[in-house]
Design a protein around this nucleic acid. Sequence first.
DNA 1: CCCTAATACGTAGACAACTACATATTTTGT
DNA 2: ACAAAATATGTAGTTGTCTACGTATTAGGG
Lengths: 161, 161
Amino acid sequence: MKDFALELGCLGFTMRLKRLSDALMHDGRKMYKELGVDIEPNWYVVFRLLKREGEMSVMEIAEKIKLAHPSVITLTNKMMKADYLSSAQCTDDNRRRLLTLTQKAHDQLPRLEQIWNAGERGVIKALEGTDFMEMFSLIEARFGEKGFKDRTIDELNKPTL
Amino acid sequence: MKDFALELGCLGFTMRLKRLSDALMHDGRKMYKELGVDIEPNWYVVFRLLKREGEMSVMEIAEKIKLAHPSVITLTNKMMKADYLSSAQCTDDNRRRLLTLTQKAHDQLPRLEQIWNAGERGVIKALEGTDFMEMFSLIEARFGEKGFKDRTIDELNKPTL
DNA sequence: CCCTAATACGTAGACAACTACATATTTTGT
DNA sequence: ACAAAATATGTAGTTGTCTACGTATTAGGG
């Protein structure tokens, strides 16, 4: 069955992006299950960030990984429940909550790093021979400057020549 | 604030894909609202498909646009509720349900096509000077052949030289 | 010094995709 | 012709993201 999104030209773009990112995430989840590691896709971002930074507040993490803060709360609550993160109220500013990796997290990091490095190599091979990442950065930047909505509305308002 | 996903190399790939596709979808929803059109992102795929094909069953649509069938059911139920789709049991095969565009859908199509064409031009401009779509097709195909999970596990099992 | 504005976090609700399971109908292989 | 397999649809429950709103705390300006 031929993929209709391909026939839609650039308008199929959004749908295809979503399909690929969903597929990768589902496959990532399956991978961790198959490897017997009880972590979820995307946790690695927080692992790596906190490994480097030591401790960070919810908002700091949200800004750094560019997710809305409720998403970070959901994510980190799960990691806390799985005993990979611990949280402590900041003494200087009682609004903030500082998150750090637990001992369990540090213990598992070598194994996790091994998996992530393999994942990295796998993705590199999948992208081999292309400058996809550079190009993707460019596209991200362009949509960052002016979003899909504004681009479309601008086109709609152009006088038909 | 610098984007940490950028520092993650190819492993940030999944997260960045999801972020961009989510952003596009949210912006698309906002766009339709701003234009006063009561449709949702992704409906256009079904509109265009049924405009061409006339009538299709749930599974046919699912295969054609490569979504799981429950997703198609959810999507088309909403379109039916908004009176853009009508459904009729297939007389030859009582399991199947055939979906067609309603009169309302046909009436609104000219306006919608206008918007989608503007969207298409907007995306084309965002991708200008790149061969992003071609490259994206290649990456889709590669992950279609062998997914993230298998790629990673293969890398893990390679003997360290 | 206090009131207002800004900031940090949290909760609630919406949404789109998925898998897994259930049900109904048709097809197929003796 | 009937039982078993395949197919079409539907339902339930999970996930990860978002916006919008609420609450608590801190910072700043007269």
